[in-house]
Nucleic acid binder design. Structure first.
Lengths: 253, 253
DNA sequence: CGACTAATTGAGTCGCTTCAATAAGCGTGG
DNA sequence: CCACGCTTATTGAAGCGACTCAATTAGTCG
């Protein structure tokens, strides 16, 4: 049920110098920075540092003092909460250009862990909070994003509370193909069509932790979908959506 | 599983004239208005109207155009989402001083329904959005509240994804006693001690819809807690917490 | 190629749901 | 004020979806 805990101290957590310039940043238009002028964005950038995260490294722990917030530059992170006895629930998954952390709060509300090698742009929270206070456009952007995160959490509540394993998994795959397509479209702003061939960023165990299922249930349900002709499985991480309409039906849309 | 649908059109949805003055408002310090000066608050107040909601009346429907947002003045509302075939999940419960609705969005993301007779202070969304844009303190307050809502949603995700019926119910009761005490403390700002004797604002069915359980499971689990001496049940809506420590243990803290 | 990890598959169990019936609350009208 | 009737809650029995435990198989990386 709980994922195997990664090393108790973050493994291979490397610090990298400040970016030479935000101008070259691959997510400058899609991250919160997009709400700022070039000058403002560079000023914000001077507060931050780029940090490399190896797969499995934890960026922040639930309950820790909230020293930092971050933009995801590259890779995929999971946000999670656990019970005292180690059952884990993944709250959401952060892709490049997503913002993670808790501004204006003293405690980190969830654990943030890299599920594949990743790079983030890390800001000390105190300085970030001050910067936000003097830049209303940035605060507005944060609000918009938090509202969207809240809507995502709400959709997931419906999934976990009221949907079957097959419905949750079908919905997850459809959403994933959409999110991956968006993340892949490079520094530009235009959206992309949903992808059919995907590389799953999550292991079966992690998919289970996200959807509130046991790993065996995830595996069996995927096999079922494969037999039904809805998907194709390629190795551990590969997946092809063969019949999107069938998946939508399975998801209950 | 799904609650019996209330009348399709909101029953007895009465409109009441603008409040003579926000000064007399029972939640003026605890609602978002608390972030404003008296003058600003009155200006915001002139945009709104007070509206009475009978138990069961729906204030907004999921997917509707987002015409309005609101402060809860009195009573209790539920926010909910449903599957196409009628399974319902309650996303959260709004008490006096809580803010509901989706600013800066064209679609309402959830259904809002009064679970007991209620009064709300209703704002046209367009005017509200404009007002927020010119009052950074209010936007900051909205962000703070949205972040807290998100943390609540996250805690509920852990509940629904990974906890047993007894754990969810114990956690719900502890949280409820806290929230009711806060709501009860009147117009002042000071918090209150958690209450032991509660009047449940939700029916068994609604508790089930909130915790992702069948009504029978809610009933059986409450009876179990009563046998264990953790609680006492008084009629349909009355409940006394007899052993808070036991409840906390049951909740898995 | 071999060793380790992740995923699949099978069998059995359990917690919660479903279906069905009874009981308790509670508002209403006689 | 109490009896009636409707709604809501409780209780029981049976079923099932997902979980747990236990092998086995398939990927992946050195």
């Amino acid at each position: 049920m709980a994922a195997v805990a990664p090393a108790l101290t973050s493994p291979r957590l490397r610090l990298v110098p400040v970016p030479t310039a935000c101008q070259a940043c691959s997510v400058k238009n899609r991250a919160i920075c997009g709400a700022l002028s070039d000058d403002e964005r560079d000023a914000l950038g001077r507060l931050g540092r780029v940090q490399q995260l190896a797969r499995g490294a934890t960026l922040m722990w639930e309950g820790d003092e909230a020293h930092a917030v971050a933009n995801v530059l590259e890779g995929v992170l999971k946000l999670s909460l656990s019970t005292a006895d180690g059952r884990e629930q993944i709250l959401g998954v952060a892709y490049p250009s997503d913002f993670v952390g808790r501004p204006f709060g003293t405690r980190v509300p969830y654990q943030v862990t890299a599920v594949v090698d990743a790079r983030v742009c890390l800001f000390p929270r105190a300085a970030f909070d001050r910067f936000v206070a003097s830049h209303p456009a940035l605060e507005h952007e944060l609000l918009e994003r938090t509202l969207i995160d809240l809507e995502r959490a709400h959709a997931q509540l419906l999934d976990l509370g009221r949907k079957t394993a097959a419905e949750r998994l079908a919905g997850f795959l459809l959403d994933l193909s959409l999110r991956l397509a968006q993340a892949q479209c490079g520094p530009s702003d235009r959206p992309a069509a949903p992808l059919d061939g995907l590389e799953l960023p999550l292991s079966r165990q992690q998919i289970g932790d996200l959807l509130g299922l046991a790993i065996e249930t995830v595996s069996r349900t995927l096999q079922r979908m494969k037999l039904d002709g809805a998907i194709e499985l390629v190795g551990r991480r590969g997946l092809v959506i063969r019949d999107r309409a069938m998946l939508r039906r399975m998801a209950g849309y």
